[in-house]
Amino acid sequence: MVETVSFRNKEVEIAGHLHLPENFNGEKKYPALVGIHPAGGVKEQTIGDYAKRLAEHGFVTVVYDSSYQGASGGEPRLLEDPTTRVEDARCAADFLTTLPFVDSDRMGVFGICAGGGYAISVAQTERRFKAVATVSAAPMGEGSRGFLGHLSPVAEQIDTLEMVAQQRTAEAGGAQPLYAPFVPETLEEINESTPDLLREGYDYYRTPRGQHPNSKGRFLLTSMDKMFAFSAFDQIPELLTQPLLLIAGSKADTKVFSDQAYELSKGPKELFVVDGATHIALYDVPEYVDQAIPKMAEFFAVL
């Protein structure tokens, strides 16, 4: 059962889907989950598939398009603002607490790719989330300041920020906005040196495998200053005391981020490695998703 819902993050209306358990009974109280989509993604893609499967395990689950993206409101379009993304998740929790069939004391959060980073980030300061799980986690701040766990030289980071500053000035003067792709936009951009994350990202987001008309696969270039200023991991040792489940593929080039989060966490934690899976394979390949879902359902049973 899926219901179309909406809630607000300040003045922005957020478009969501509420996945309900089979044999749903509005007189009962259910544990509830908030699901956060990957960067460039929307609720109808992998996060929606996970939400549907988790609802089959008895969880009321809400997924949504982030502010400025997909079917949600907000200007400028395709802004990737990590602070707003974290607030979106808080607002989703607000929404769940208004539902009479949700047990507000049994809420968790999960995310895929960048959504996993945002899930970790929001759980550090949102105590209504009693547990947090990630799939192929890729924190946006840490990821933007380097590539796949390798920090870019400071001079390169400053060059990027200089470029963003110039673009902001140009747009303030009436210039058209510029956008950057999250994954290659054409097959011609891919060669033997292209990382699996980007190669398979093209296959998921740019082909019928996973593409959706609301998923543009790009972001506003002037998002970069906000991304550079953000950290999903900085308060893990002190503030992330809730149980943490990190799911990553053994062949994922982003597994380094799950390893880092695991090492930083001082609370209850588990790193669940899916043998043979890559980053994108955990989005939709049954062989691997069929391992991730039962693990998450078992994990969130603590709620």
Rank of each mutant, 00 (worst) to 15 (best):
G174P: 07
S6N: 12
V285E: 15
G210K: 03
A89C: 09
N191Y: 04
M107Y: 10
M227S: 00
G267T: 11
G249R: 11
S67Y: 01
D253R: 02
I112D: 03
P243V: 05
E270H: 10
T98K: 13
A137D: 07
A51Y: 06
T169Y: 00
S72N: 02
P237S: 07
M1C: 10
V154T: 01
P286L: 08
A137F: 01
V274W: 07
T186L: 14
Y204L: 10
E22Y: 04
F59Y: 15
G35T: 14
V63E: 08
Q176Y: 01
K10Q: 10
S6I: 05
P76G: 06
Q211I: 07
E189H: 08
T61Y: 08
R199H: 06
L303G: 09
P243S: 09
L282I: 09
I190Y: 08
H150L: 05
V164D: 01
M227Q: 05
V62P: 08
A248S: 14
K266M: 12
P38A: 12
D196Q: 14
A281C: 07
E185V: 06
D103G: 02
Y202F: 15
A165G: 14
H57I: 09
S121V: 13
Y68R: 00
E22G: 12
I112W: 03
V302R: 11
P82W: 00
R90C: 08
N191K: 07
S121H: 11
L20V: 09
D225S: 10
Q211C: 13
E189L: 10
T278K: 04
E200P: 07
N23R: 14
D234Y: 11
R77Y: 07
G249M: 10
R218W: 01
I120K: 04
V132H: 07
L161Q: 03
F147W: 12
V5H: 08
V102F: 11
F257C: 03
F129E: 11
T61R: 01
P31T: 12
L151R: 06
H37Y: 01
V132A: 13
A252H: 03
D159F: 00
K52H: 13
R77P: 03
S72G: 08
Y68W: 03
